[in-house]
C-alpha cells in the first residue's frame, strides 16, 4: 500500500495547489492538482526552477467511463537528480477541457497533440491541435477517439 510521501523541499512552492500526494512505484511522487490550477503550477515550475532544471517527459491520459472522468497525468522530470514528479488532474468526461501549457513549456506540444487526437482532451490555447495527427483518417471520419474505453476500433 502506498504511503503518502511529503512534497520534496525543492517543490515547496506548489503547496498551495496540492490536493493530495501519494507515490507510485518505483519512487515517483504523484501530486494531485485541480485542473484549473495546472497552468499556474507550470508557471511556478518555470519561475522557481527555471530551464534547464526540469522537462516534461510525457502527458498520459486515461479514460474512466464508470467515474465519468478522464485523468490527465503530466510527468515532469526535475533535474539534475532526475526525479520524476507526476502532476495529476481529473477532467469531466463529457467536456474534457484544460488550459494548454505550451506557452510555458513548448515541450508539452507532442503530448498535448497526442492526448487530443487519441482521447479527445481539448487543450485550450494550443493552436496546433488537430485530428489525424496520429489517428488514421478513416477513424477520424467516424468521430472516434480510439483510446476511450467505449470506442471500438
Amino acid at each position: 500500500m502506498a504511503t503518502a510521501p511529503s512534497l520534496p523541499s525543492r517543490l515547496d512552492f506548489l503547496k498551495d495547489y496540492v490536493l493530495k500526494t501519494y507515490s507510485m512505484k518505483p519512487n515517483r511522487i504523484i501530486i494531485e492538482v485541480d485542473s484549473k490550477y495546472v497552468h499556474k503550477v507550470f508557471e511556478l515550475f518555470k519561475e522557481r526552477l527555471g530551464f534547464p532544471n526540469f522537462y516534461i517527459s510525457t502527458i498520459a491520459g486515461t479514460d474512466f467511463p464508470k467515474e465519468n472522468t478522464i485523468r490527465v497525468d503530466y510527468y515532469v522530470v526535475v533535474l539534475p537528480e532526475e526525479q520524476t514528479i507526476v502532476i495529476r488532474t481529473y477532467l469531466p468526461r463529457d467536456e474534457p477541457k484544460i488550459a494548454s501549457i505550451i506557452d510555458i513549456v513548448p515541450g508539452a506540444l507532442a503530448g498535448e497533440c497526442e492526448t487530443y487526437d487519441l482521447l479527445g482532451v481539448y487543450f485550450e490555447g494550443n493552436r496546433f491541435l488537430k485530428r489525424a495527427f496520429f489517428v488514421p483518417t478513416d477513424v477520424v471520419e467516424k468521430g472516434i477517439f480510439p483510446l476511450r474505453k467505449d470506442s471500438k476500433v
Partner: peptide
C-alpha cells in the same frame, strides 16, 4: 542551447550533446 533542450523536452543524445545530463541508467 541547453535551455532550449529542456524547454522542448529533448532527450537522449540531442540533450546530452547540449550539456544536459539526462540518463535514466544513471538516475533510475
Amino acid at each position: 542551447k541547453d535551455v532550449d533542450a529542456s524547454r522542448y523536452a529533448l532527450v537522449g543524445p540531442p540533450a546530452r550533446g547540449s550539456g544536459i545530463k539526462i540518463d535514466a541508467r544513471a538516475s533510475d
